[in-house]
Design a protein around this nucleic acid. Structure first.
Ligand SMILES: [Mn+2]
Ligand SMILES: [Mn+2]
Ligand SMILES: [Zn+2]
Ligand SMILES: [Zn+2]
Lengths: 145, 145
DNA sequence: AGTTATAAATGGAATTATTCTAATTATTAA
DNA sequence: TTAATAATTAGAATAATTCCATTTATAACT
């Protein structure tokens, strides 16, 4: 059994890929579905093992390939904290990340427009920022989930 | 010839180490001096080759050991952007980093108190942030240096 | 100064996340 | 269908960093 996206997500998925002349394969759909399904910022490794439950033949290289493709299409975002393995996030709104050093869990933190524009205003003249990255680490309650 | 710190820095250096019962070795002094000397956010690799000019017998492991020690003493900070090699920064004031995707150079960007406290205010109740990390990437003029 | 205890430095091997390569398989369009 | 092309696969390669066992340096104490 393959991992099937629900209608609205499947539409976004195949449109985004086809716009770039890429093919909506079952591996790509599965990887995307898994990232959407449990928004816990999984690593490639995490994703690999989850994908295997649906498509047992999937290789590690494929997971990395799919992730690169999905990032390239703007469907998911990479999250890097320190030197730990890259994590993947389907939340496309402007948001920061909080990593709890006790549990290792990563939480989304919304950024309001005001604070966001203040952060952007830090960038001096002559510089053009294409990307902002804000992350916190410390300890956080794990009440949610 | 060993890399010698100027008096005020040497004082900070040996005090910070001795506070933790650590020894101010010539390798540690050299690594610290190199990071202070050219504030270009060098990688361990960069630092290794610069150190070798002063202390040719230095090993890679030692550079990593010294860096870990200096970070532990709060004399330098690690800067991580994406998955690229860790860089080292002697600027201990609250500041963000801007990476130019064309040149690879990393620039310090000061953060004013106001913006800083707004960023801190994003952290929800129940979470205690020990660290903030703000980084930008894009294109920047390389006029300085 | 000389001895001893401990910390640090060293070279090389090991680890680990990620990327690359060459061969096979799937998808699409004609 | 067939042919062209793109994607997947297994495994090798890469690269930053860490680990390990040994040697050397440092500092405290005679
Ligand atoms: Mn895992
Ligand atoms: Mn270099
Ligand atoms: Zn997120
Ligand atoms: Zn800096």
């Amino acid at each position: 059994m393959t991992f099937s996206l629900t209608s609205p997500f499947r539409k976004t998925f195949s449109n985004s890929l086809r716009e770039k002349g890429l093919r909506p394969t079952k591996q790509r759909e599965c990887v995307y579905g898994i990232i959407l399904d449990k928004r816990d910022h999984p690593t490639a490794d995490d994703i690999y093992y989850r994908v295997k439950k649906y498509l047992p033949g999937t290789s590690f290289a494929t997971v990395y390939n799919c992730l690169e493709t999905l990032v390239g299409c703007g469907l998911v975002r990479q999250v890097n904290m320190d030197r730990s393995p890259t994590r993947y996030c389907p939340n496309l709104t402007p948001h920061a990340h909080f990593k709890c050093n006790k549990t290792g869990r990563i939480y989304d933190i919304q950024i309001d427009e005001d604070t966001l524009s203040r952060m952007n205003a830090l960038v001096p003249q002559g510089f053009e920022a294409e990307n902002i990255d804000l992350s916190f680490s410390g300890t956080g309650n794990a009440l949610e989930n």
